[in-house]
């Protein structure tokens, strides 16, 4: 299959999954994170089912870590890579932003179709964050 076509379809199916499970809705995601409030466990079902599906299909696909091209994520693809300070501080910072807004990157991009000002502001700021990382850490 043409690689651009397959990535387009993959993006479309991924997005439909987020939309159908309502993980695109910050209010619903925040209700999952609010364990002390009226807790909404939906996100746990979504993640567990996505993990189960991918885990099963992955067994059929059988890719070795070195076959997977994403250099950025090599460390999460390779099960033997170690935990370092960047992983810990980056994930902690991400969680604070996620908890403030209810948006993680995928839902934030889909949010651009909502016409809500908060979506545009968040997505713009997120790309500034990506850019900041590239400037600070990637142009060695």
């Amino acid at each position: 299959m043409n690689s651009n076509f397959s990535s387009f379809i993959s993006g479309l199916v991924f997005g439909l999954g987020l939309v159908i499970s309502q993980m695109t809705n910050p209010v619903k995601v925040l209700a999952f994170l609010d364990v002390a409030g009226s807790w909404d466990p939906t996100l746990a079902f979504v993640m567990a089912d996505a993990l189960l599906t991918l885990g099963l299909l992955q067994r059929l696909i059988r890719k070795r870590p070195e076959q997977i091209q994403d250099t950025d994520l090599q460390a999460c693809v390779n099960p033997k890579a170690g935990v370092d300070a960047k992983l810990i501080s980056g994930s902690a910072i991400f969680g604070i932003g996620w908890g403030l807004s209810g948006f993680c990157p995928g839902p934030a991009l889909i949010g651009l179709t909502s016409g809500l000002a908060g979506s545009y502001v968040f997505a713009g700021a997120m790309f500034i964050g990506f850019f900041l990382f590239n400037r600070l850490h990637r142009d060695r």
Binding site: G90, S91, A92, I93, F94, G95, I96, G97, W98, L100, S101, F103, C104, P105, A108, V121, F122, A123, G124, A125, M126, F127, I128, G129, F130, F131, L132, F133
Partner: peptide, 9 residues
């Protein structure tokens, strides 16, 4: 939040 999510991820 957007800045934190972008940089943190």
């Amino acid at each position: 939040a957007g800045l934190l999510v972008g940089y943190g991820t």
